[in-house]
Amino acid sequence: MRIYFLCGSLVASLLCISMPAYAIYRCEASGKISYSDMPCPGARQLEIRDSQIDSPSSAKKQHIENKKALEKVENARHRETEAHYKAQQRVGKQRAALEKKCAALSRRQQYASEDVRTAPQKSVEKARRKANRITEQYEAECKARRSELLAS
């Protein structure tokens, strides 16, 4: 009795394995995609080859390959995120340094304009030239660079 049962099970499993695959159709209706074993209007038959059905050993190999590929993608994403973070830090440091330098130039500009107002008649022209130079330096270094850093 057991022999017949084992033979019957073996034959049934062999028949299941060796049975031809049914056609599978990809149907699209109202923007929704569905899969069916019966054709629908405008359906496209999908080809499923035996090579797509993996054995346990090839499935394990495929799993390992997929895991390695995922690790590569994760590592690349991590490197990209880290590079973006470092770039943000670098820009932040540059902005802080520019703010500090511009604040110092602004104070120098303020002091130079005060010197022009309080200078004796004889040295007013010299003080005015100095104030103009400081103003030019402030505009050249602060206004242009500030717009560059804000754009980045």
Rank of each mutant, 00 (worst) to 15 (best):
I3A: 06
E114A: 13
R79Y: 01
H78C: 07
E65G: 05
Q45Y: 05
A29V: 13
Y22C: 00
Q121C: 01
I17H: 03
A83N: 09
R129Q: 15
A76H: 05
H84P: 02
A59I: 00
R128L: 07
S55N: 03
A140R: 15
P41S: 14
S30F: 15
E148L: 09
P56K: 03
C142N: 08
R90Q: 14
H63I: 05
D115L: 10
S18A: 10
S36N: 10
I53D: 08
A12M: 09
A96T: 05
E139G: 11
T118H: 06
P20N: 01
M1L: 10
E139S: 13
E125A: 12
Y35I: 04
A131P: 01
R77A: 12
Y35W: 13
R49K: 14
I3F: 11
E114D: 05
Y22V: 04
Y138L: 13
E47H: 08
H78P: 04
K101I: 08
E80S: 11
S113P: 00
A76R: 14
L150N: 14
S13K: 02
A140Y: 04
A103G: 12
V73D: 12
L14C: 15
E136L: 06
G31F: 01
E99K: 09
V91F: 07
K32C: 04
C142R: 03
R107P: 01
L46G: 06
C16S: 08
L14E: 02
I17D: 04
Y25L: 04
P20I: 00
V11R: 07
R117W: 06
S58Y: 00
C142G: 10
Q45M: 11
A104H: 05
G31K: 05
N66Q: 11
R77V: 12
S34F: 14
S55F: 00
K126N: 07
Q52K: 01
K143A: 15
L149S: 11
K72L: 09
E47W: 02
K68Y: 03
A21Y: 03
A119I: 02
T118G: 07
Q137S: 14
P41R: 12
P56C: 03
L14I: 10
Y25F: 15
D54M: 06
